[in-house]
């Protein structure tokens, strides 16, 4: 639940999601659920010429199991709070 709560604090911020097939998608995080499925708005693909079919897509629901990394602005992460929360075993 810790990471679910953590991702909820990132809602409405811009993140870049890297999938296991190397697609990188930048977009505004709109929602997250307990499987860490992500929903992004206003998406743009970082390596777009390789994946042209993503150009006409407005928003994207990504299944959590296919995500490799989520990149985010370091300013939006409160590390001390996160550490405290992990020690409490939330």
């Amino acid at each position: 639940m810790l990471f679910f709560s953590f991702f909820k604090t990132l809602v409405d911020q811009e993140v870049t999601v890297e999938l296991k097939n190397d697609i990188e998608i930048k977009g505004v995080l709109k929602s997250v659920d307990q499987f860490l499925n992500l929903k992004l708005d206003n998406i743009s693909c970082v390596n777009e010429d390789k994946y042209p079919h993503l150009k006409s897509i407005k928003n994207l629901f990504i299944r959590g199991s296919t995500v490799r990394y989520v990149h985010m602005n370091p300013n939006s992460v409160d590390c001390t709070l996160l550490q405290d929360a992990s020690r409490r075993g939330m």
């Binding site: 407005k58 629901f61 990504i62 299944r63």
Partner: peptide, 19 residues
């Protein structure tokens, strides 16, 4: 079946055939 889904995107029907 949901386990086979990687992603779902809503299409902009005005530009869907552009690429």
């Amino acid at each position: 079946r949901g386990e086979n889904v990687v992603m779902i995107g809503e299409l902009d029907i005005d530009t869907e055939d552009e690429h």
